[in-house]
Write a protein that binds this DNA or RNA. Sequence first.
DNA 1: AAAAAGTACTCTGTACCACAGAGTTCTTTT
DNA 2: AAAAGAACTCTGTGGTACAGAGTACTTTTT
Lengths: 100, 100
Amino acid sequence: MSDGNPIIHQATRLKIMASLNRLGPNASLEFTHLRAIVETTDGNLGTHLATLEKAGYVEIEKRFEGRKPQTRVMATPSGRRAFTEHVAYLCEIIETGGQS
Amino acid sequence: MSDGNPIIHQATRLKIMASLNRLGPNASLEFTHLRAIVETTDGNLGTHLATLEKAGYVEIEKRFEGRKPQTRVMATPSGRRAFTEHVAYLCEIIETGGQS
DNA sequence: AAAAAGTACTCTGTACCACAGAGTTCTTTT
DNA sequence: AAAAGAACTCTGTGGTACAGAGTACTTTTT
């Protein structure tokens, strides 16, 4: 049996991916909004987003809202797929206890 | 919002607790059987079980089957409760993305 | 009888990693 | 001017998952 997806399993990243997955496709969340949801520091959130970006699970867009910098985060199709698969894995674990 | 239960969230311990929770109350699993389920080493499994025992989530019974030592592991009521609550937390995260 | 293998545990060392916090840059608000 | 917000990077610390070796005892295999 697999171990699930360790990138997604981590508590903070699970929340990030769940938040993004909930949105419709092509919708994104602001860095600051995400920071409020996961309740962490700038630095920590930045690190987790970098991890997810490196895995190809999120896309990070830096743009300007007027002249204020704004970072927006969006799940990629591959990220959505990985999230869905990990949720399925969790459900399976919960139901079967890992026996297959 | 809470962070869920970090003791139970860890991948290997999640499998252990799920395996035990699946059994009826007062039912137990052998150390060796559990080791096969979670696919890890003696030492590692022992450490995880010690963590769960210290949290009051499992009870460890050392006995003899004939003259062979046998370690049996059982979820405590508190362990079952914690597992159920963490599963509820996971479901909530998955559905709401952590927004409350 | 000797060797191998199983059960279960402890200990050590390694490698990773989550996180806080400080420092930076630039901008807007007060 | 000063404070505060946005969004990073970097560093240091602490925690911890895991493998693997070593131990003690027992049963099975050769």
